[in-house]
Computed example of a mutant assay.
Amino acid sequence: MRTLIVDDSRLARTELRHLLGAFPDVTVVGEARHAAEARELLTTVRPDLLLLDIHMPSETGFELLASLEAAPQVVFTTAYDEYALQAFEVNALDYLLKPIQEVRLAAALQKVQARLAPAEHRPAVVAKPAPEAPALSTLTEQDQVFVKDGEQCWFVRLAEVRLFEINGSYTQIYFDQHRPLIPRTLQHLEQRLDTRTFFRANRQQIINLNWVESIEPWFSNTLKIRLRGGPEVEVSRQQSGRFRELLSL
């Protein structure tokens, strides 16, 4: 389990590294003193796990996560207990209070191993390069993204997102009962998403093919698709032809 430690305290980083030495399956691949340093390391060391402090200079741990397009598994390590609810609202796997006890660390690592086990044969979910970088890797349905909308935050696996839809200068994403807005264009998302799973239905919408519930003919040789959990999506004439070829209809 490749682990990145992010904490502004040198003593805290040293103590965590010492504690992790008791777990042979854990490899510390780097340390960061603040969010900017962590952001750089995430693109190069490709960790499975982020041991993340909350209070740091310039940016908090939550702000670091909000700046990432995708993130590894996260366990918060902090001296403050008042952020526990917020941590679990973003689907962090655990929340360890300093001084960290080895038994609590062991329990947290077991949770991480359980989460990673089904995906042990695929690359870890990591932060991707900035959009203008020349080599952008594809985001698959197994990747998870951090979404922040106002005061609410989520870690969302792309497999759970059934629809991306233009909403003004933002994109609205549909998962569970939520519809937060993200500061990404649909064109940017189309370039990043795996075309085996995500299909551009029209100028306004990208659908997750695994969420298609029914397909019916519509006007002018187009198609109308109903997604599980809604809504209905009208496929443009050009894309209807591509959709039929894709599914051999």
Rank of each mutant, 00 (worst) to 15 (best):
T3S: 13
I5S: 04
I5F: 11
V6C: 10
V6N: 12
R10L: 08
A12F: 03
A12E: 15
A12Q: 12
A12M: 02
R13M: 03
L16S: 01
L16A: 05
G21D: 01
F23H: 13
D25T: 08
D25G: 04
V26G: 05
V26F: 01
G30K: 05
G30P: 10
G30L: 08
R33L: 08
H34P: 02
E37K: 02
R39Q: 12
R39A: 13
T43I: 08
T44E: 10
V45Y: 12
P47M: 11
D48P: 07
L50V: 05
L52D: 04
I54V: 09
H55S: 10
M56F: 00
E59N: 00
E59G: 00
G61C: 00
E63D: 10
E63G: 00
S67V: 03
A71T: 12
T78F: 05
D81M: 04
Y83N: 02
A84I: 07
V90I: 13
D94K: 09
L96D: 03
K98W: 03
P99S: 08
L109W: 05
L109V: 01
L109C: 00
Q113A: 15
A114Q: 09
R115Y: 14
R115N: 09
P118N: 11
H121R: 12
R122N: 01
P123C: 03
V125S: 13
A127C: 13
P129S: 04
A130S: 03
A135I: 14
T138K: 13
T140Y: 11
E141A: 11
K148V: 14
V156F: 08
E160M: 07
F164D: 05
Y170C: 11
T171F: 07
Q172L: 08
Y174P: 05
D176I: 01
Q177N: 15
H178L: 10
T185G: 14
L186V: 09
R196P: 00
R200W: 03
R200H: 06
W211H: 15
E216N: 12
P217L: 04
T222S: 15
I225N: 06
V235R: 10
V235Q: 05
Q238D: 03
Q239L: 03
S240C: 04
F243I: 04
L246E: 00
L249M: 15
